[in-house]
């Protein structure tokens, strides 16, 4: 009887393992490039965001990336979640001009932003974005870490992954060599190229690696603002279910006691 149990367990494990591996097959890295794990604070199952990273990351987005990349799914009021005060949020919003209207004359006009506004897009539409970027469309960054294999680890690897092309490879016009971009040729010039490129409000040393980590963390928050709440809830749910499971199993054993 024990042998049958062992046989069943081994079979179940074998099937289960092959099941999980083939189910994850659809998302397994199809390229051969291995994306190094960057060790973000939120990478582990119970990890949380580092508010300092998020705030510096937002500063980088605002000063560097927002020139070309929109984030139209975020609103300025969302920045309260990374630790900005109501006044700071209002200031950030008011620093941009948002299109509004039509007014009573039927015309569109510009006005300072408010907390409830969505992040301002640098271009009016994709065609304008392409025209300003040699035909390439800088993707919207609202969910970029969910839209790429490797998530924040990939974004970070990409940002610090620019290099000289290997011997024998000629780059297409306007392209740059990147070790992690699929196909290795990316239209975006390295956006974080110099240490000290910008000055952080909290005094942290702005090395390229630090800036890349911060903006990658920020982008992960932008894609998954509910992450910390979700994991905390998950812990409570699993503990509850474990207790309930124990109780239910005990009841089952009691009810079945005179049958076995």
């Amino acid at each position: 009887m024990a042998l049958r149990f062992v046989k069943t367990a081994v079979l179940a494990a074998a099937i289960g393992l092959s099941a999980v591996m083939s189910m994850g097959a659809a998302r397994a890295a199809e390229g051969e490039v291995h994306i190094p794990s960057a060790g973000f604070s939120f990478s582990s199952a119970l990890g949380t965001y580092d508010r300092g990273e998020l705030q510096r990351g937002f500063q980088i987005y605002k000063e560097v990336c927002s020139a070309c990349h929109s984030m139209h799914l975020l609103s300025y009021r969302n920045l309260r979640d990374i630790g900005l005060s109501e006044a700071e949020v209002a200031a950030v919003a008011a620093s941009v001009q948002i299109q509004d209207g039509p007014n009573d004359n039927g015309e569109m006009f510009e006005r300072p932003g408010r907390a409830s506004d969505r992040f301002r897009s640098p271009f009016a539409n994709p065609a304008a974005a392409r025209a300003a970027n040699n035909g390439a469309l800088p993707p919207d960054l609202s969910v970029i870490t969910k839209a790429r294999n490797g998530g924040a680890d990939y974004i970070h690897a990409l940002l610090i992954g620019y290099a000289e092309p290997p011997a024998g490879l000629t780059l297409a016009e306007g392209m740059h060599y990147n070790q992690y971009f699929p196909g290795h040729q990316i239209a975006m010039a390295p956006p974080l190229s110099q240490d000290g490129q910008l000055t952080f409000g909290d005094g942290t040393n702005a090395t390229v690696d630090r800036m890349s980590r911060d903006v990658s963390a920020f982008l992960n928050w932008a894609a998954e603002p509910e992450l910390e709440t979700r994991r905390a809830m998950g812990v409570r749910v699993l503990i509850f279910l474990a207790i309930l499971g124990g109780l239910t199993y005990a009841v089952k054993r009691k009810v079945w006691a005179n049958v076995h």
Partner: peptide
């Protein structure tokens, strides 16, 4: 429910494909 909870709370996009977060 415990298996379900692990997926939903800790690996909600594991079985999906990143490309579906591109419009």
């Amino acid at each position: 429910l415990m298996v379900f909870a692990v997926l939903v709370f800790f690996a909600p996009n594991y079985l999906g494909h990143p490309d579906n977060y591109i419009p």
